[in-house]
Amino acid sequence: MSLEPFVEFSRNMTLSQVIEAAATNFQNTEWLLQGGLDELNIRRVNAEKIYTGTLDTGKVTIYGKDGSYFYSIDKNGITANNGSEDTLKFDLATGLLTIVSALIQSAMGFPRVELDPTNNNFRIEQDATTNITFNPNYLGTTPVINFHDGAFDGYIGYFNALNKLALTTPDDGGVEVEISNGGLSGDVSLRPADNLNVPRWSNVWNEPDGVSLQTELDQKANGSGINGTVYVASTSGGPATTPITFVDGVRVS
């Protein structure tokens, strides 16, 4: 139902016209008071605030003050636009949420997780100086996972031009581990700044043969070592009078 125009009373109206106008205006007022206002009766509302329960419509678009920013909801989902691109899209059919950036943090600011489109990375931050950063395009060519703790950095990165996966930590030397060429024929390089420490040689294994390095050393000593005593000079040019004794190739005295 659409409203009839409200009738203005005038001095020239007859009694029947006054009665008819009053009836029309009464009917319109009753219709409005009973909540019968619909799309046939209203084209635009200018209001500071609108209070409502269920808003039943095909599409709702909320514009920013300048008219370029908007937020819309329709049967397909939800869209937010900053005036030049969609910054948020939610597909109701699939439940897929697409956002161009995100920041999830505690009330104190840290810890937090950030998807950063400006620096093209994804960061997990414990505080302002401790974080893990996933950078898919480090230096323009290399995907890298960076570990930062105060003044020290370490990273795991794949260098496509060298066909190499590298682990380096920290910045001041540390150790660098490289796996290159890939597959079963690849190389593994260890470059410690100081020592390469292993618990014992029995922990280093020849995998295809199932033999430890300690076993290999023992077999070499036992199989080809000398037994007996030899005499060597204790000083340069001196007589060979100092005995050295070997058992299975191992010096015992």
Score class of each variant (00 low, 15 high):
Asn195Pro: 01
Thr57His: 07
Thr61Pro: 03
Arg191Ala: 15
Leu184Ala: 15
Gly36Val: 07
Thr133Tyr: 05
Pro192Asn: 08
Thr215Ala: 10
Thr54Ala: 14
Tyr51Met: 12
Ala102Tyr: 06
Leu33Ile: 15
Asn160Gln: 06
Gly77Asn: 01
Arg251Glu: 12
Gly58Glu: 15
Thr61Ala: 12
Gly228Leu: 04
Asn28Phe: 06
Ser180Lys: 08
Thr235Asn: 02
Asp149Leu: 03
Pro199Lys: 13
Ile42Pro: 01
Leu103Arg: 09
Thr61Val: 13
Arg191Asn: 15
Ala161Ser: 11
Pro136Arg: 10
Val230Pro: 01
Lys59Tyr: 05
Pro143Thr: 04
Leu15Arg: 13
Lys49Met: 07
Ile99Asn: 02
Met108Thr: 13
Glu114Trp: 06
Gly186Met: 06
Asn197Tyr: 09
Met1Phe: 14
Leu103His: 02
Val230Ala: 02
Gly157Arg: 06
Pro243Tyr: 05
Phe9Asp: 06
Ala161Trp: 00
Leu115Thr: 04
Ile50Trp: 04
Ser68Asp: 10
Asn163Glu: 05
Ile19Asn: 10
Gln214Ser: 09
Ser212Asp: 06
Gly186Lys: 07
Asn163Ala: 05
Ala107Ser: 11
Tyr69Asp: 00
Tyr69Glu: 00
Glu178Gln: 14
Val175Met: 11
Val45Ala: 13
Asp171Pro: 07
Asn76Pro: 02
Arg123Ile: 10
Glu39Met: 04
Ile145Met: 06
Val60Glu: 02
Gly228Arg: 06
Pro239Ile: 11
Ser253Cys: 02
Ser68Arg: 13
Asp127Ala: 11
Ile179Cys: 08
Lys75Asp: 08
Gln105Trp: 01
Asp86Leu: 01
Thr54Glu: 12
Gly249Phe: 09
Asp149Trp: 03
Glu178Ala: 09
Asn12Ser: 15
Ile19His: 10
Ala240Tyr: 05
Asp74Arg: 04
Val252Pro: 03
Glu4Met: 10
Gly83Ile: 02
Leu32Glu: 12
Ile124Gln: 11
Val60Ala: 07
Ala166Thr: 14
Ile145Asp: 02
Leu196Ile: 13
Ser202Leu: 05
Arg44Thr: 04
Ser202Cys: 02
Lys220His: 00
Asp172Ala: 14
Ile50Lys: 05
